[in-house]
Design a protein around this nucleic acid. Structure first.
Lengths: 219, 219
DNA sequence: TAGATTGTTAATCGATTAACAATC
DNA sequence: TAGATTGTTAATCGATTAACAATC
């Protein structure tokens, strides 16, 4: 089959979310045309995307939601819940600590928070266990943490990332405007650059008509 | 010249950030090759991107940073500082209220915060002026707010967006997992879906080698 | 069977990369 | 002048869209 292209990965991961919501609403079957509407994509694209997962539907019949969900979770690694930590507990970090990732499904659980400032650790009220930053490698390893959310001041971002890599995380979600370079290869990085988004938004509203503003790829 | 393609807009808006930092460091000239390194892009791409702005450099000489910056700010709308508001003052919203957008440059200023819960407005300590949500259209219009950051619970997201549109914002930065449809056309939307990013990160670390994890488009 | 809808190949489109001429 | 580097056209690559055969 070969490797799944990046834009397809993006759409499939979003599709998974949509299918999950549909199943909660008691819907069991869905056509490529219907899914296309949700993603703002043509039915062709949806069929092709799903086709990358291997034959998933039967001609003439709508897709069985449960089948597609299983295929996606098998191939994109969504079978098991992922364990996360938040590094840097300023305003943004503390907010992330309690953030309801993915609603009730609990697919992403925050199991630890880290900060260099020990006073801060004592001040914050949270159900999540908190630790001083120097213990990152040890705790990440012990708790088998998969993903780290980096919310430290930007000049500490790379170091925080390095510590997480030492502990063996699989991915970094970077909230600073820095470009993070993973210490050991095999670690993926995604960045959420809020100021960058404001910049893009400004440029779009300045150069574009509204309906083109958010093509599905994000980023 | 025609319209600037979306991927080019993304890169140019990021380039602007890089150029700004370089100028702060006292650098005045830079080559397409050097810029390419920063963006993880080839020098060809950079030259082509800059070329969309109209002739900007002179053959044989490196680009003059100040010239490129001016061209970008003129054509992407970065000349004037943008006024922002935060709608929804839960943990994430309160954090955004004080967020240092773009460091010292002050290109994005948060000038108002809104929440439906009046008790909450009284509890939050902030230098930003806070208002009850029903006043959104009035205040947005009065303070000439350009951009709104939507950080309300997801079932209130569309309504919050509608109120902001009524007031005349030009863009919405959506922090909820909902797809927001702008009430009046001409309003652009960008979404930051944190759970979605965790999902993508999981998929990438499951299917990809590290260095492919973050192509520049974000998207 | 007829209608609906997927699977899958082919055509189109657009962006990236390469190449090199222009010129400071 | 020679070296460096941009401007700009051409070639490549990949993703999206279209089309339709397959089949339930």
């Amino acid at each position: 089959m070969g490797q799944i292209p990046l834009p397809v990965i993006y759409r499939l991961s979003y599709l998974f979310d949509i299918l999950e919501k549909m199943e909660e609403d008691g819907i069991h079957n869905v056509s490529s045309a219907e899914l296309g509407e949700f993603l703002g994509q043509s039915s062709h694209t949806i069929r092709k995307d799903i086709h990358y997962l291997g034959a998933a539907g039967t001609a003439g019949n709508k897709y069985v939601i449960d089948d597609i969900k299983r295929l996606i979770s098998d191939q994109l690694g969504y079978r098991t819940a992922k364990r996360c930590c938040v590094v840097g507990l300023g305003r943004l970090g503390s907010a992330l600590l309690e953030h309801p990732f993915g609603g009730g499904c609990n697919r992403f659980r925050v199991v630890a928070g880290f900060d260099t400032n020990v006073n801060r650790l004592e001040t914050i009220r949270s159900s999540v266990e908190l630790y001083p930053a120097y213990r990152i490698p040890e705790i990440v390893r012990r708790l088998e943490i998969d993903l780290a959310l980096i919310a430290v001041p930007h000049d500490q971002a790379q170091e925080a990332a390095d510590r997480c890599c030492e502990g063996g995380v699989r991915g970094l979600l970077n909230f600073t405007p820095m470009v993070l370079v993973p210490k050991n290869s095999g670690v993926c990085v995604r960045s959420i650059d809020i100021t960058g988004e404001l910049r893009i938004l400004t440029a779009l509203s300045y150069t574009r008509k509204a309906d083109e503003s958010e093509p599905y790829t994000k980023e």
